[in-house]
Design a protein around this nucleic acid. Structure first.
Length: 417
RNA sequence: GGAGGGAUGCCCGAGUGGUUAAAGGGGACGGGCUGUAAACCCGUUGGCUAUGCCUUCGUAGGUUCGAAUCCUACUCCCUCCA
């Protein structure tokens, strides 16, 4: 019904992943013949990817699932330059060491998400450091630079928007596009890549690569971008409660990740179900029709499925169960974040303020005081208004657990041992 | 190389000698209403051993009873001219 011959494009269409593309018919044909080899490049500006990267990851997942080959490119070298696309100002240059540790930590995610067997569809994980750092400047200018028109580059959004706003654009950033274009051509020649996938802000960089391939070697390369992810209220996705939602479980626990999806806006739920779960379309259609409070059922499924995709089924079920106990039965689950406290430590006087700082609800005693003043702090569901309160075994339940709560949603356990 | 403008809290931005821990807005967080939603209303948004003390308006000095505000030097950014 969606009109493509390949499963790959049909799925992408159904799940609203296609924003812009080069010749879809050709991509369709390649996918049918299982000759599609698509790459996405990832910046190494942070130690983990975040929710904003998820759409491209999902596409790579479907690509592999439908019998084509995903190629993941770590931007070890391009991160040294800094992509100006979609950014209002120059990003500070990262130290080479930082980039290295970032790329290593991101790579572990890919190894987990795209396990290798020994088939043709095994993912390829590469780092452009391998070739870009070996380039000689004069050769580069003669072989590659000569194919680029500055006139044309100035019309690209990444450059044009900066110029129009009279914002600084350094020469190093101006070159970013050329390096990414070269990456595409290199991957095409060396590994047979014929498609590049990216967020919508990558369109200019991607077609620069397509054009370079055509000019240098008459290659037929293709482009596909995903819509920029925003929430219904128009915010960039992935920002919440003071920061990005990271994909690395060490930076964002599965429980917190589950909570993020549980708390999305109603109007986003159907789209997120399609994009970030692998549920069959029938099931999604059914969930989309839920309205009012029933939509909470859909959100729970969204949370569990999205978490399962990233952290595995078991972690997702645990998170779901923890949430169910905490929110629906008010029993504190053992799986909430916690620390152990000895009875001795407790008896020697354990201030509530200190406890709130330890469990990271507050960053200072002053902030903890403010929370208490604002009626935000509960111990075992009992409102505490005395900032001098000292924790004791009397605060614990029969199992010897003290549950600290900040607001309705954040809980932390202190287990007396 | 010459001339001018600027740097304020998470971000934007007002303030040009005392009532300024610094207006206003945004964001974030908390409370209320709800459905762990949105919208809306209210509150908070430097630190501490806390009716007080300490630190903060690019950096380092100085003037003054008193400085984000005045002076000097330095650093960085921007605009115009060459």
């Amino acid at each position: 019904m969606t009109g493509f011959k390949s499963d790959f494009l049909n799925i992408l269409k159904q799940r609203s992943f296609i924003h812009q593309s080069s010749d879809l018919e050709e991509i369709d044909q390649l996918a049918v013949e299982r000759k599609l080899s698509a790459y996405t490049g990832f910046d190494c500006t942070a130690p983990s990817l975040h929710i904003g990267n998820l759409a491209t990851l999902m596409i790579l997942y479907w690509l592999q699932k439908t019998g084509n080959k995903p190629v993941i490119l770590m931007g070890g070298a391009t991160t040294m330059i800094g992509d100006p696309s979609g950014k209002e100002e120059t990003r500070k240059l990262l130290s080479l060491r930082k980039i290295k540790t970032n790329s290593e930590s991101i790579e572990t995610l890919f190894k987990k998400l795209f396990p290798s067997g020994s088939s043709l569809q095994d993912p390829l994980i590469l780092n452009n450091e391998a070739w870009l750092t070996k380039i000689n400047y004069i050769d580069m200018l003669r072989d590659i630079g000569s194919h680029f028109s500055v006139n044309r580059m100035l019309t690209m959004d990444s450059v044009r928007l900066r110029l129009e706003r009279q914002q600084e654009m350094s020469f190093i950033e101006f070159n970013y596009m050329i390096l990414q274009a070269y990456d595409f051509v290199h991957l095409a020649r060396t590994w047979g890549c014929n498609l590049q996938i990216g967020g919508s802000d990558q369109w200019g960089n991607i077609i620069a690569g397509m054009e370079l391939g055509r000019r240098m070697y008459a290659l037929r390369l293709h482009a596909l971008t995903t819509p920029l992810l925003t929430t219904a209220s128009g915010e960039k996705m992935g920002k919440s409660s003071g920061g990005a939602i990271w994909l690395d479980p060490n930076l964002c626990m599965p429980y917190a990740y589950w909570q993020y999806w549980r708390n999305v806006e109603d109007t986003d739920t159907p789209r997120f179900l399609r994009q970030f779960t692998t549920l069959p379309p029938d099931e999604i259609n059914r969930l989309e029709l839920l309205r009012g409070t029933e939509i909470n059922e859909a959100k729970k499924i969204l949370a569990t499925e999205a978490t399962a995709f990233l952290h595995g089924r078991e972690a997702a079920e645990t998170a779901a169960e923890t949430a169910r106990l905490v929110f629906e039965t008010r029993i504190s689950s053992e799986n909430l974040p916690s620390i152990n406290v000895t009875r001795q430590e407790l008896e020697s006087g354990f201030g509530l303020l200190k406890a709130l700082v330890i469990c990271k609800f507050a960053t200072s005693n002053s902030e903890a005081r403010r929370f208490i003043k604002g009626n935000a702090v509960h111990i075992n569901d009992r409102l505490i208004q005395d900032e001098q309160h000292r924790l004791s075994s009397e605060d614990a339940d029969e199992k010897g657990i003290i549950k600290l709560s900040l607001g309705k949603k954040r809980h932390f356990l202190m287990k007396i041992i």
